[in-house]
Design a binder for these strands. Structure first.
Length: 476
RNA sequence: GGCCCCUUCGUCUAGCGGUCUAGGACUCCGGGUUCUCAGUCCGGCAAUCGCGGGUUCGAAUCCCGCAGGGGUCACCA
């Protein structure tokens, strides 16, 4: 029985973008691979920044991606509750222990005074350290009025990170940070340490922004005399344009948006995992199961990975092509154009299998398939913009279509018969396929692109095909 | 500014002292696939491995400097 436990601990301040999901994904992959547990913990200790409904939004996103959690807000477990706002008494008792140990004290300074200290430090070009201003006789701490600070024991640290390797920092990285805010809520710095310990988390997977404060955490673990989980720090995911960390501010999309556009979860996970991780082989496309099997902390790279949507697009198409017809049909359900209403399931399945290999994401279905369901209005530009066709001239095109119409009227519209019918048209007219087939394709679909001609006509059916060709003839 | 981390094709990456005149994938470009789009197959462009010094018979790989980038220095997480 493996006791590995990982957690994803977002704060409910909005949606999740690719960077956030990657952290969750790595934690989830590790847990699933090692038969451990994946815990979702909501870090809602900042009432001001909290965004209404975002917890539900985050959960929806995780579940849509298949990142299911074993313990969490609506998934009871032995170490709940899993919302920090519901664990206030736990933090308070840890805080009181620290006070008894002489390792925490009330912060008497006003915000203005603090700001002043900070200004001074900035003026000297040195980093601000609260402990340089540690009050000699701090007042008693009253819960819910004054902030409580950690009384640090500054020293240099060296530590192991499962990804970054050996890390170190001098004592200047250690400070008297706030444990409990004046509103009685704990800070992240305090709450996550208590929770990870209480919830028996074995691996903390989190972004690089926490490396700088790790020495503080180490100091606190010592003060509390508790063992720390392993640290796993993947590199940042960078924005597409440059070298900044991917952020909502710079337009990072809600991952749920990709789901809504019909990017497959497997493709999304495959792509996100490949940002900063590889298994050392040349394999690019992974199913979720393969990801679980191959994942390894040891193979997470150290440098930041840029988010490139083109690669995602390619992967998404690749995953769609791997789908069975049944699976694709199931997933396509909510993406049909409204014109498809009323068509039998069997017909839609045939349409789908014709466009499957052309799809990059499911939201493309309507534009690719609409002509299979409804007669599109005649689009003269389709012929005008085709250099070969427009060179021939309308009267001649009209004549050609007339011949095609008569010939196709003889066909039973089975695939084989259509094929030979079209081929013989080539002989009869003496035209190359580039002209004849283009013409028929445009006439019968009125779409800029479509699957191969014979297949399309067969699916369209004789009646509709002939009707559309007649219409085109009338317009020429 | 202090501290910490990172640095191989445009992008994601392989690479752990010789098999690297640096491999794969995406993108892009050319060609085949009886029409279009996509797919697929074949081919091509693309990194003197951030720069400068060492160590070594030999360095993308080890060491030292420098530069660039990122992170952090909140009663945010």
């Amino acid at each position: 029985m493996n006791s590995l436990r990982t957690r994803f601990a977002p704060s409910p301040t909005g949606y999740l973008h690719v960077g956030g999901i990657r952290t969750a994904l790595f934690a989830w992959l590790l847990a699933r691979q090692q038969n451990g547990k994946f815990i979702l913990r909501i870090e809602d200790t900042d009432k001001d920044r909290e965004v209404e409904g975002s917890t539900q939004h985050i959960i929806k996103c995780l579940i849509s991606l298949g990142l299911d959690y074993d313990e969490g807000p609506n998934q009871p477990g032995p170490y709940g509750p899993y919302r920090q706002s519901e664990r206030l008494s736990i933090y308070r008792s840890y805080a009181e222990t620290l006070i008894k140990l002489g390792r925490a004290y009330a912060d008497p300074y006003s915000k203005a005074e603090l700001a002043n200290f900070r200004r001074q430090a900035a003026k000297q070009g040195s980093p601000f350290l609260y402990r340089n201003h540690r009050p000699s006789s701090p007042p008693d701490w009253k819960y819910g009025s004054l902030p409580l600070r950690f009384k640090s024991d500054p020293k240099a640290y060296r530590w192991q990170d499962e990804v970054m390797g050996n890390l170190s920092a001098g004592e200047e990285a250690i400070d008297d940070f706030i444990l409990i805010k004046s509103d009685g809520f704990p800070t992240y710095n305090f709450a996550h340490i208590v929770d990870d310990y209480e919830m028996k988390i074995t691996h903390i997977i989190r972004g690089q922004e926490f490396i700088a404060s790790t020495p503080n955490y180490l100091n606190l673990y010592e003060a509390l005399n508790i063992t720390r989980p392993l640290f796993v720090t993947p590199p940042p995911v960078l924005g597409p344009s440059g070298n900044k960390k991917l952020s909502k501010r710079d337009g990072a999309k809600d991952v749920l948006e990709y789901i809504k556009q019909g990017y497959l979860e497997a493709a999304l996970l495959n792509f996100i995992a490949s940002l900063g991780w590889n298994d050392g082989t040349t394999q690019e496309i992974y199913t979720v199961d393969e990801l679980i099997k191959s994942f390894s902390l040891k193979r997470i790279v150290k440098s930041g990975a840029r988010f490139d949507e083109r690669r995602l697009l390619w992967m998404s198409g690749a995953h769609i092509r791997m789908l069975s017809t049944e699976e694709l049909t199931k997933r396509a359900k909510s993406f049909w154009p409204k014109e498809a209403i009323g068509y039998p399931e069997e017909y839609k399945i045939r349409v789908l299998s014709l466009v499957q290999e052309r799809l990059k994401f499911l939201a493309e279905i309507p534009s690719l398939t609409r002509f299979f369901f409804v007669d599109l209005p005649l689009d003269p530009s389709l012929i005008d913009n085709n250099p070969k066709l427009s060179a021939i001239g309308k009267p001649e095109l009209k004549k050609l279509l007339g011949i095609a119409l008569d010939s196709l009227a003889q066909s039973d519209f089975s695939l084989g018969d259509l094929q030979s019918n079209l081929n013989s048209l080539l002989d009869v007219t003496g035209q190359p396929p580039g002209i004849l087939f283009s013409l028929i394709r445009i006439a019968s679909t009125q779409a800029p692109a479509s699957p191969p001609l014979a297949e399309s006509l067969k699916l369209l059916g004789k009646e509709r095909t002939l009707k559309r060709i007649k219409q085109q003839i009338g317009a020429l």
